[in-house]
Design a protein around this nucleic acid. Structure first.
Length: 453
DNA sequence: CATTGCGGGGGTG
DNA sequence: CACCCCCGCAATG
């Protein structure tokens, strides 16, 4: 009966995590969460989820993206940053038409070694496309255990194609090993990413993998069959959980990396700027998103790395924003009224102010050797208890399925205070995401194409 | 051998 | 001070 399932499959427009207003740095996170989000393998954008502490994948802090541990000197919160993706520097096309997009090794050494290898397809050099999706820095994921929940928050929008998922990489490894003893398929393809193999390989090495990785309520991420439409939206194409939670493909994602000349990863400069505003993510006035937009719009595409400095200035002048990120409404066309509403409404953000250290009562993320007295740099934390706002828990309680059972239900999720964004939502034309003619298959080769088979 | 998490430490604005 | 990154270490598989 799983409430979560019911909700996801239905028309929930918002993840449990997004429904509530919280920030990973809050001294107190929403308690008494009654619903959890199904695990999200490929999160992208500024999202938050609340997983059950029982969720294996969440426990492992898994992600489809290659995330490496980053020291944030805060043992309560685990921070990981994206390593990007390893591609063929020639941008060659694999036999099946897709492109090589390997998962960067997490270990620095292993990664260097990995990059010395040659493209299995054209023998060209491999190249690591670093992630700069978060104001010029890699996208970051934060994990924090609190009570029976595992809070997840992501910051940034990946500006590079997806690498193999972890399970794919593992599958490839084991299959490569196996091949040594008895090669079942064409060796050449074997050397390529599993995704290039399509169902064939998957069917032989993936099942267990996938099952272990994907929770019951997790749709398979490699649809056996895909309609032509689906792959326009790589996220959906991958059958990600609540399609609703996935952002529409964003053409700009591949624009900000002018340094790379292989066309495969670049879109035409004439990408629709408006997509930003059509994108639910743009609806947020959170600092991060704000920065992102500024960066994307004002920086010419010629600058590889927006200097973090200027970004920081903006950041500093902007109060940290425990921002209620707007919900996504994937199942809803961006141009639909409901979507529009979602876009233009958002919860009032609470001003941030330094708050007294939580009385060391913070549930420790993991055994934290440090004496509680010296709680590691705890952010200028949390919105002071918005006196006017209902507590999170009560919110939760109220968040009965009925209160958000339709996409149209967009208000009040965070406590009732709603306001419109400072920037006008553009006329929501039913954006054509491929206005630039960009072929997302290359951006997201992981997206199987039905014609591959 | 790779992954994961921890934590010291340097650099920057 | 917050944030970024690098590095090495240890446990684990």
């Amino acid at each position: 009966m799983s409430r979560a399932e019911e909700r996801d499959e239905a028309d929930c427009v918002c993840s449990v995590g997004m429904k509530l207003t919280w920030d990973i740095n809050d001294p107190k996170l929403p308690q008494d969460t009654k619903q959890f989000d199904p695990f999200q393998e490929w999160t992208d954008g500024y999202v938050r989820y609340i997983y059950s502490a029982e969720d294996k994948n969440a426990q492992r802090h898994l992600s489809g993206w290659a995330m490496r541990n980053t020291n944030n000197h805060n043992c309560q919160i685990l921070k990981k940053s994206c390593l990007g993706v390893v591609v063929c520097s020639r941008g060659c096309t694999l036999p099946d038409g897709s492109r090589l997009q390997l998962r960067p090794a997490i270990c620095d050494k292993a990664r260097q070694k990995q990059q010395k290898k040659l493209c299995p397809s054209c023998s060209g050099a491999l190249e690591l496309l670093p992630c700069r999706g978060h104001s010029g820095y890699p996208v970051t994921n934060f994990w924090r255990v609190d009570g029976k929940a595992i809070f997840f928050q992501a910051k940034g929008v990946h500006d590079h194609p997806r690498p193999e998922s972890k399970s794919e990489t593992e599958a490839r490894r084991s299959s490569v090993k196996r091949r040594v003893s008895s090669p079942p398929f064409t060796p050449k393809r074997r050397l390529l990413e599993p995704q290039a193999l399509g169902p064939a390989l998957l069917s032989c090495v993936e099942p267990a993998d996938r099952i272990s990785f994907i929770e019951p309520n997790f749709p398979q991420h490699y649809p056996a069959f895909q309609s032509p439409e689906t792959y326009y939206n790589p996220h959906n194409a991958l059958g990600e959980t609540p399609p609703t939670l996935q952002k529409p493909t964003n053409p700009r994602l591949y624009m900000s990396r002018p340094g790379y000349e292989f066309q495969g990863y670049l879109t035409s400069p004439s990408y629709p700027v408006t997509s930003d505003l059509c994108d639910p993510r743009s609806a947020s006035h959170s600092l991060d998103q704000f920065l992102d937009q500024i960066r994307i719009r004002s920086k010419s595409y010629s600058q590889l790395k927006p200097d973090p400095g200027s970004v920081n200035q903006i950041r500093n002048s902007f109060q940290p924003d425990p921002e209620p990120y707007p919900c996504r409404y994937p199942s809803n066309p961006p141009g639909s009224p409901a979507a529009l509403q979602t876009i233009i409404t958002t919860t009032t953000k609470v001003s941030y102010q330094p708050c007294p250290k939580p009385p060391a009562a913070l549930p420790s993320y993991q055994s934290c050797p440090k004496p509680p007295s010296s709680l590691p740099s705890y952010q200028p934390c949390a919105p002071p208890k918005p006196s006017g706002l209902p507590g999170c828990s009560s919110l939760l309680e109220d968040a009965s399925p009925s209160s958000y059972s339709t996409e149209v239900k967009v208000t009040d999720e965070s406590g009732g205070v709603i306001k419109s964004l400072s920037f006008q939502p553009e006329p929501l034309q039913t954006k054509t995401e491929r206005a630039d003619g960009y072929d997302y298959r290359y951006a997201y080769p992981n997206t199987y194409r039905y014609d591959d088979y």
